[in-house]
Design a protein around this nucleic acid. Structure first.
Lengths: 172, 172
DNA sequence: CTTACACCTGTGTCCAAGACACAGGCCAAG
DNA sequence: CTTGGCCTGTGTCTTGGACACAGGTGTAAG
């Protein structure tokens, strides 16, 4: 399981760290220091290659619901949080908005299939992406053309009715 | 001059309006009601095909500096404001940010050539646009591929370690 | 004259997805 | 004990306007 390999990785990095400082620590003891596979925000972030701020953000908007260490108030992320965050990141890669993801998770949390919602949402988002793509393509072409045209033109000082001739003569 | 043709247009529309209500108003009188070619926000917006909010926005951030009618506090946009706004809209079409445009206008207002700044800025913005273009292209391809793959797959109910198989099995 | 309505003002808030800041608490090493 | 790194919650910033709101103005109709 991915989370466990992440845990191993954490232990490895702890071991590596300890060896640097000349101490050998039993992995079982490391595991005990934070009972039953919990991790803190920075470790959670590292495991999935995002910043701690991203983990905090998803916690703030309640997509992640970590436990709380009564002693120090630190948040404890479980394997369930790990899976949720991994899911969130995959969904973001597919262009779903955070709100979409909340809707999808709401279905899943009620043990209902989120798939119809997912299919409906990706159609919408794909349309929007096609739109943005076309706009970005056009903008890019306009800009490229401007750079080319301007390379032939001199600089000019503004006049009463002309602020920058490059921009204003680039009529389209 | 474009502004004057806009003014004519305004007078025409006033005339049209008056005719609808069965009154004929002398254009000279209309012109006098708002001395020396000034216009109010909604008319300014209409002339350049944007919303009044857009004109108010550029006024708020001091790109436009209309005069003020002492009697009623209404803002009076001059031909200079019209030219500035037209310039701003052209520059926005070329991908310049509002901040870029402020920098460009600052140069022009000091009678210095804004062209070197314009050339420098468009290089930056074009790079960013190429970047965004590539990202949007990739996202679009991912999404299209997902839609195709998912059309062959059934809906499923979430399990303990799977929230939505469509998304989670779409590994990349 | 009043009423209705369209327009105007300045100011504040909202959008997305985090990034960054800040004040204050926790914890381990030297 | 101090230092430094990590943690907490909360607030603010980013873009380019869009929208809201409270209150003032202008004008045609009743």
């Amino acid at each position: 399981m991915d989370f466990l390999s992440g845990l191993e990785l954490m232990i490895d990095s702890y071991q590596g760290k300890e060896q640097i400082f000349g101490v050998n620590l039993n992995p079982a003891i490391v595991r005990l220091s934070c009972e039953e596979g919990c991790v803190k925000v920075i470790e959670m972030a590292r495991r999935l290659g995002v910043t701690a701020d991203t983990v905090r953000f998803y916690t703030r908007i309640k997509i992640l619901k970590p436990g709380k260490n009564k002693a120090n108030g630190y948040r404890e992320y479980s394997e369930k949080d790990y899976n949720r965050l991994r899911f969130v990141l995959s969904a973001r890669q597919l262009g779903f908005s955070v709100e979409d993801i909340q809707e999808i998770l709401n279905h899943a949390d009620k043990k209902k299939s989120p798939c119809p919602t997912v299919r409906r949402l990706i159609d919408q988002r794909l349309n929007e992406t096609e739109q943005r793509f076309a706009e970005t393509l056009q903008l890019r072409e306009r800009m490229q053309q401007a750079v080319v045209e301007w390379s032939q033109k001199p600089d000019k000082v503004p006049t009463g009715h002309m602020i920058c001739h490059l921009i204003e003569e680039f009529a389209q």
